[in-house]
Design a protein around this nucleic acid. Structure first.
Length: 282
DNA sequence: AGCGGGACCTGTGGGC
DNA sequence: TGCCCACAGGTCCCGC
């Protein structure tokens, strides 16, 4: 599910609820929801959330221990993968069918609430890490630049070889945060064929792609993400960018721009939709 | 290098 | 209505 715009929306909607809150307790209902390299979640107790941010598709809680004498800093990192959801609950409303982990938090002004991590497909992961564990986690270590930070030159340099352009966009070490929806939407906006060889792009084409990535992701964030089925923000609201899809999930339908029938193919095992007229091979 | 296929899982929607 | 199959927003791993 959640790609960059969805995780960004979750982070923004969740931040005001959790900032300054302290972890009181946790309940890990499914052991496999914990990344094997994680510190035990018991280390959470007493730690305070100093910031909530996003890196690629990861949600990152920055934590500090309460005592000023020996401050420790940890990060609680959550990857929602396909169907993960994070949301808050005021009281003890009981677990959902797919609840994998529950965190009990204490507000700075007093009073407790719970943070739920639900995940139907159980692909999602939770990782509690110090800076060393985080830095040596391959997925974190190898993550490429944020799409809003990368320069055109750096993007040009990262697009190499004969691999399909779409595969490069999905490669988190090239750019962090783009998934199947936004790869297809971005390529349409840039008028580039998904099978173009990554290394064959001219500088103006990379410039074009760079613009498309930023504008598609910004539009999607403005619409609070895309809700295909599972996705909701931290307050249970759906996104609305699915109403603006030009190609994703529209194989066989007419291009909204030129009317041609959109083609659906598979690239690297992922369904890929594009317009053969707006996105010519050359 | 990169692709196809499988694995990890559960749910949903379409076809019959 | 019900059953079976294909497919789903992501990543990792293996073999070719």
């Amino acid at each position: 599910m959640p790609e960059l715009p969805e995780v960004e929306t979750v982070a923004r909607s969740l931040a005001p609820h959790v900032h300054g809150c302290r972890f009181v307790d946790f309940d890990l209902l499914r052991q496999s929801a914990l990344q094997p390299s994680s510190l035990p979640l018991s280390r959470l107790r007493g730690m305070k959330i100093s910031a909530l941010s996003r890196r690629g598709k990861l949600l990152v809680f920055s934590l500090r221990s309460g005592d000023a004498a020996e401050q420790t800093a940890l990060s609680l990192v959550i990857h929602l993968r396909m169907t993960g959801r994070i949301f808050t609950r005021e009281a003890n409303e009981g677990l959902g069918k797919h609840t994998r982990c529950v965190f009990s938090l204490e507000k700075p002004v007093g009073g407790n609430f719970q943070l739920f991590f639900d995940d139907a497909r159980t692909f999602g992961k939770v990782l509690l890490a110090d800076s060393q564990i985080l830095a040596s986690w391959p997925f974190w270590r190898d993550m490429g630049p944020e799409p809003f930070d990368v320069t055109i030159e750096a993007l040009h340099k990262a697009l190499t070889g004969r691999r399909p352009l779409k595969s490069s966009l999905l490669d988190q070490s090239v750019l962090a945060g783009i998934g199947n929806i936004y790869a297809d939407e971005t390529l349409f906006a840039a008028r580039l064929h998904p099978l173009r060889q990554s290394g064959s792009l001219t500088f103006p084409e990379v410039q074009n792609l760079h613009d498309a990535i930023r504008s598609v992701l910004m539009d999607a964030i403005a619409q609070k993400g895309s809700s295909i089925r599972d996705y909701r923000d931290a307050e249970g609201r759906q996104g609305s960018f699915q109403n603006f899809f030009m190609v994703y999930g529209r194989g066989g339908k007419n291009c909204k721009k030129c009317g041609a029938a959109l083609e659906k193919i598979r690239i690297g095992g992922r369904a890929t939709v594009f317009c053969p007229v707006c996105q010519p091979v050359l």
